[in-house]
Design a protein around this nucleic acid. Structure first.
Lengths: 327, 327
DNA sequence: TTGTAAGCGTTATCAA
DNA sequence: TTGATAACGCTTACAA
């Protein structure tokens, strides 16, 4: 069942059928005839052939570091909503936290010319990333990470963590920090700097062993809390780079009879659905993840259609959500 | 940069280059010549042209009801791992819990001949689903749902819920149940039946107003717990169809000074990462979600490559995880 | 407003 | 072992 069959059955040339399918520019009679045949046969044009001819795929590649994460799934939800409504489909690439696979997918997508655009939720940016990005022939939007010179949508991580640290330091004197790898600019470096600058502004010294580097998991938060409280029992606050890490810290403290927030205050970043149900309910930063996903999608849409009046860099707002884990 | 250019540069015909790229069957000299040219130019064959010619896309469509769910993201993680390793890419379709969109995507995928196979994480199965499924020209594997006559990988929901209800009924006399829509066979009907049969076996009557139907969210679990405890204050256990619902119930009970598990026992299904960190830690069913995703992917792989020695239906095992929310 | 014809970049068949 | 040649199903000048 191809365009030729339809053309024959409708008694027109295949060019006319093609026009009917696309621009229009077909007389009423032929239009009706073609419509009847198509309805009858249930004909659907071949995507591949169209793509081969036009170069457009109507597919967007989305590269994510892991799928099993509250913040990431919220961003993907925002992306799919906007893109599906605009007639695009989503090719999902999960790197499982392996940054080299980010580059692999970037290459794969563009070399195979499989996508019209890419949204990259990156973690770190190496020089290889830069070259791979440059070699993409399709628009790329970076999401949840700041990369100078590239269209991106990111959270205001520095300000947010600084503000939440300010809050903690109103009553704490010996804060600890559980962060993630500094190579991750947004979640690692910027959040850490926000914390440190807040401390510095108040003349609070933070020892090396009151700080730890965790992975993005509950378990890892648990271990890091253990390490810090072991090395520095006087610690009276744990500022964490993500909610998951904070959940782990909370669990460690509870299991060891340390009261939150009386003995130790705890904060997170992300405001996942579960931050309201842990005990005590977690003080955290609410980031507008789903909206940032939509924003990135809209930005990409603008880039792909050439309506390039879109801003090149969007910094999302945030809110500090004060709950029971701080005083 | 196409196959003709390469052929010219290497001094062979494009058929030879094609053979080099696929079967082999090329002499050593030509092989070397072609390799050199390809390395030099960085030529990558066009996916679209290949697909147009062969009909193979090397893409698998995965239809999911929502992205922001612990169990679903675990299943998707399992799927991507297996499929990516086998050289397939994943086209993700999110229906946002709208069952009619499941059919839409089923049609979209097959009509556009965009995928070589489909994994459907369905919710309900209407007659329209059946016809849409029949009209797919590519293999489909149903994941996390039982559909007679179709290849599927599903959890043993009936037995699991029955067993966890048995556990609860050792010490509870007036159990309540918070389920989801019965149209969802796995999470709705089977889990509910498991609970009811366990009660019946012990001669325990469960009043209508000790049962409620929730959505798959924490908030909804909260409201349902509220409704049941309001109507039946004597309720001494809440068996919940999912972990999220149980989190909500736990929150309601805590906020109203009802002790868990002393006054009311609570159980969930799913064993998300967070079930270990809520207070008290949740007794639940551990379902092997990630593994079931891998299994479904392997099954589909078998179906797609015609190695049809694979079983048609896999029922996954489970474990009851006894924690602090039961006595 | 319509039809003809030339691709888009591959793979597969068949002879050589 | 290789090379012509014909598809695959569509879009788009260009001419009518």
């Amino acid at each position: 069942m191809d365009i030729n069959t339809i053309a024959q059955m409708a008694g027109v040339s295949r060019a006319t059928v093609s026009r009917y399918l696309n621009d229009g520019y077909v007389s009423q009679e032929k239009r009706a005839a073609i419509k009847r045949v198509i309805d009858q046969t249930g004909y659907v044009p071949s995507r591949q052939a169209k793509t081969l001819r036009t170069g457009k795929t109507d597919v967007v590649g989305v590269i994510i570091p892991k799928i099993n994460s509250a913040s990431i799934s919220r961003m993907v939800a925002g992306i799919t909503r906007v893109l599906n409504d605009a007639g695009y489909q989503i090719l999902l690439a999960n790197t499982d936290n392996d940054a080299s696979r980010e580059i692999g997918f970037l290459r794969l997508f563009t070399e195979r010319r499989q996508v019209d655009g890419i949204i990259l939720m990156g973690t770190v940016f190496t020089p290889e990333h830069q070259t791979a990005l440059k070699e993409c022939r399709v628009p790329v939007v970076i999401l949840d990470q700041l990369l100078a010179g590239w269209p991106c949508v990111h959270q205001d991580d520095y300000a947010a963590t600084r503000e939440i640290a300010d809050l903690v330091l109103e009553t704490s004197k010996a804060p600890g920090y559980i962060g993630v790898l500094e190579e991750d600019v947004s979640a690692g470096e910027l959040r850490h700097r926000g914390f440190l600058d807040s401390c510095a502004a108040r003349g609070v010294d933070v020892a090396e062993d009151a700080q730890a580097v965790a992975e993005f998991t509950v378990d890892s938060g648990y271990s890091c809390a253990e390490a810090i409280m072991g090395a520095r029992p006087e610690t009276d606050a744990l500022v964490c780079a993500t909610d998951s890490i904070a959940y782990g810290a909370l669990t460690y403290l509870r299991e060891h009879g340390i009261r939150v927030p009386e003995d130790v205050q705890v904060t997170g970043v992300g405001d996942g659905e579960l931050s309201q149900i842990v005990t005590p309910r977690l003080t955290t930063v609410h980031h507008h993840y789903k909206t940032s996903g939509s924003e990135a999608a809209k930005m990409l849409l603008g880039l792909m259609t050439g309506t390039d009046t879109v801003p090149r860099e969007i910094k999302m707002g945030y809110e500090i959500v004060k709950r029971a884990s701080t005083r």
